[in-house]
Amino acid sequence: MTRQHKLDYDSPIGIIEILGSDDAISSIMFSERDKTENSIQDDTPKVLVDCSTQLDEYFKGERHVFTFPYIFEGTDFQKTVWNALTGISYAETGSYKDIAVSIGNEKAIRAVGSANGKNKLSIVIPCHRIIGSNGKLTGYAGGLWRKEWLLQHERSFKKDIT
């Protein structure tokens, strides 16, 4: 079994816990802790440091695409949904139905919603960009207030995309 490493990133909307191996990130999730517990150490794998740096750039509005290696841990269907989520561009939104159609299974709206809720790579696999077909915000594991913040954040920097 590959050793898992932890690193906390103190974002403007709370602490984000980054988990990964020496080679790839497996989880980026909001924590409800008030302070960081896992800081960069001499033996922190480069991939975790890169993830933290890229998240920092994202929150500063300087990064719209992530390039560090990550791995999906889930069923084949979940992986298909998560891969489809990466097709929703920065500052854009989509619905569960849009994703279901894009994966060729337009009747799988509820299953898409379930897979979306199991995404462990917050922000990088942009489940925060999924809204209801009525245009309203839908559930988000990090809390609806964070989802709303992330969408407004991206919209405020959209003009910078060339």
Rank of each mutant, 00 (worst) to 15 (best):
R3D: 10
Q4Y: 14
Q4F: 05
H5E: 01
K6T: 09
D8T: 10
S11V: 04
S11L: 03
P12I: 00
P12D: 02
I13E: 02
L19F: 11
D22P: 15
S27R: 11
I28M: 03
F30L: 14
S31V: 07
R33V: 03
R33Q: 09
K35Y: 09
T36Y: 08
S39I: 10
I40E: 11
I40Q: 01
D42I: 14
D43W: 03
V47L: 07
V49Q: 06
V49S: 03
T53N: 13
T53H: 05
T53R: 15
Q54M: 00
L55A: 01
L55D: 02
D56H: 10
Y58A: 00
G61Q: 06
H64K: 07
V65C: 00
G74P: 08
G74Q: 06
F77C: 11
T80N: 12
L85S: 12
L85W: 05
L85N: 07
T86G: 09
I88P: 13
I88V: 13
E92G: 02
E92Q: 06
T93K: 08
T93Y: 04
G94M: 06
V101L: 09
S102E: 11
G104A: 07
G104E: 14
E106G: 14
E106S: 14
I109E: 15
I109A: 10
V112L: 10
G113K: 11
A115P: 15
N116I: 13
G117M: 04
K120D: 15
L121G: 08
S122G: 04
I123T: 09
I123N: 02
V124T: 00
V124I: 03
H128E: 00
R129F: 07
I131Y: 09
G132Q: 09
G132R: 12
S133F: 05
S133N: 14
G139I: 06
A141R: 11
R146D: 13
R146V: 12
K147E: 12
H153L: 05
K158H: 07
K158W: 00
K158T: 04
I161R: 12
T162M: 01
